[in-house]
C-alpha cells in the first residue's frame, strides 16, 4: 500500500477518534459543566467536521498517485 492509501485510512481513524472524543467531552460537560471541557468538546467537534473535508480535498489533489 502506498502512503496515499495509508493516509486516507489514517484520516478515517482520526475522524473516528475526534467523534469519540467529542462524545466523551460532551458527557464531561454534562457531568461537571466546566468551561474547560466546553473548549475541548467544541475543538473535537470542529476536528470531526474538518478532517473528512480535508480527506476529500486530499483525494482530489492526489488523483494521479496510485494506491499500491
Amino acid at each position: 500500500m502506498s502512503l496515499k492509501a495509508v493516509h486516507i485510512f489514517f484520516i478515517v481513524v482520526a475522524t473516528a477518534i475526534a467523534v469519540g472524543f467529542g462524545v466523551w467531552s460532551v458527557q464531561q460537560v454534562q457531568a461537571s459543566g466546566n468551561t474547560g471541557d466546553w473548549v475541548l468538546a467544541i475543538l473535537a467537534i470542529l476536528m470531526a467536521g474538518a478532517l473528512p473535508i480535508y480527506g476529500v480535498w486530499f483525494l482530489k489533489k492526489m488523483k494521479k498517485v496510485g494506491y499500491v
Binding site: 502512503l3 493516509h7 477518534i17 472524543f21 475541548l40 473535537a44 478532517l51 492526489m62 498517485v65
Partner: peptide, 22 residues
Amino acid sequence: PLAFTNTLVLITSSVTMVMAWA
C-alpha cells in the same frame, strides 16, 4: 487537554508528512 493537544500535533505532522512526499 495536553494529550489532546498532542493528538492534534501528531495528526498535523501526518498531514505535513504526506505533503512533503507529494
